[in-house]
């Protein structure tokens, strides 16, 4: 398999946060712990304002700094490109959190360890979609092989709210808003 990635349609997202909640339900996360988070942005000025919502999880980067900087090797990249973590090895040093510009890794206070989006790998094995994808009422999130996503949705990978793509080379394709 190649490299798994997400597609996100900024134009269609209404910021309902259904993906965020579906992810919490799937991963049994507490308040303050979000593997996928919807960020809200407002701009413009009356009477021409705008509002954007950006939903982001781990982008399973090509150059995952979290993997590079993880001292234990708990954070690792699988063959299918999913950046996964080995819970039993994590020391809770938070180095991965200092290495990710997308807030991918999340510190679980109670366990003293970090966890993150694992692409719902268990669901993928059952031929089901990741929880966030199947939750989206606007069909604004998709996933798949990153090359196929690019073919399907175009090659744009960034929007103005993203950090420099070169830092980690995220595997996300984004549909921009025409404004």
């Amino acid at each position: 398999m190649g490299q798994m990635g997400f597609y996100y349609d900024l134009e269609t997202c209404i910021g309902c946060k259904g993906c965020q909640i579906a992810c919490k339900d799937k991963n049994d996360l507490k308040t303050g712990e979000l593997f996928r988070e919807v960020h809200d942005f407002e701009g413009g000025s009356f009477p021409s304002p705008y509002v954007d919502h950006v939903t982001i999880s781990c982008n399973h980067c090509d150059k995952p700094k979290c993997v590079e900087n993880c001292p234990t090797g708990a954070m690792h990249k699988r063959e299918d490109g999913i950046v996964d973590f080995d819970h039993s090895k994590c020391v809770g040093c938070k180095m991965c959190m200092w290495s990710c510009p997308y807030d991918g890794p999340v510190y679980l206070k109670e366990e003293g360890k970090v966890a993150k989006c694992d692409f719902c790998k268990d669901l993928l094995e059952n031929n089901e979609d990741p929880a966030c994808v199947s939750a989206c009422t606007m069909r604004a999130i998709d996933y798949g092989d990153i090359e196929e996503l690019k073919e399907k949705y175009g090659t744009n990978q960034s929007i103005r709210y993203f950090p420099d793509l070169d830092i980690t080379k995220p595997n996300i394709v984004v549909k921009q808003k025409s404004r």
Binding site: C16, K17, G18, Q20, I21, A22, D25, K26, D28, E128, D129, A131, S134, A135, C136, T137, R139
Partner: peptide, 24 residues
């Protein structure tokens, strides 16, 4: 845990009836 409609192919004419943030 909970999930929502995966009982049919999803299309604009016949969308899956996906639950919102509250149902979830």
């Amino acid at each position: 845990r909970v999930k929502t409609d995966d009982t049919r192919e999803d299309s604009p004419d016949n969308p899956q009836q996906r639950a919102c943030v509250r149902g979830r």
